[in-house]
Amino acid sequence: MPAAILLIAFTHYPTVATVIDSLFSKATAIRPSRFVGVLNYQRMLDDPIFWKVLANNAWFALGTIPTSIALAILMALFVNRSIPGRSLVRMAYFTPTVLPMIAVANIWLFFYTPDIGLIDQIASWFGFSGHNWLGDPTTVLPAIMVMTIWKEAGFFMIFYLAAMQNIPPELEEASQLEGATRWYYFRRVMFPLLMPTTLFVLVNAVLNSFKLVDHLFVLTKGGPDNASNLLLYYIFETAFSYFETHFAAALTVVLLILLSVMALLQFFVLDKRVHYR
């Protein structure tokens, strides 16, 4: 019952309120808010920034999720063996997740700073001239993607490591005796057994990629020319910089629908192919 109260107060009611809000026009001093139906949604379809932001988000998700999952598995495989200083390496991988996102963004801001930033300084030793990584519309999104991968991979690694340690070592020994290579074992045994983890991580990664807002706040504010703007940051700007709360509500509804569709897709399509013990 207390859980139901919390859910209703902080999840269900705001959702319904957002949907209702999105159907009204913006209130001004001389004209009160009135019902406008789907006008906010029509405006969205005509809004080039909305489309740009959506495309950015799609690229962002495609660029970060597979890479960070692959990296996470690789790192987990690496620290799942007995190597010297194993717990130290594990901790190092996990550090990006522990750090507050704003602090992380500030560190990377230093890396990316033109000319005096870490990347440009190293590049200058090899004779490359400075580059404004965050100021160039073509490099700003990849730059943020790299940072996100760095942050997410370590977090996902923990889940993979836990899953790997649940796989009995006899399975590897049995396939070793049958003459299976390590790659064959990974492909036919370990990866399928990691599928529940992959599904969980995938859902989380997709949600995270649409929820990203704090990095943008510190690093780029969505710029230049919306080249690094993502959906949630656009909603934030619309609502609290331009005070277009009803338009922002409409955007939020779209975000909610997108997320639910993706979560449902993942569960229903992938679930059939996942082996749970």
């Binding site: 020994e173 005796l177 299976a180």
Partner: peptide, 28 residues
């Protein structure tokens, strides 16, 4: 190990949980 020509039955049986009986038997 694979080239010694031995088969082994483990205490825990070491069956692959995601494969059915046929695939388990034919794995090697």
């Amino acid at each position: 190990a694979a080239r010694r020509g031995v088969s082994m039955v483990f205490q825990s049986y070491a069956l692959f949980p995601h494969l059915n009986v046929r695939e388990n038997i034919l794995f090697g």
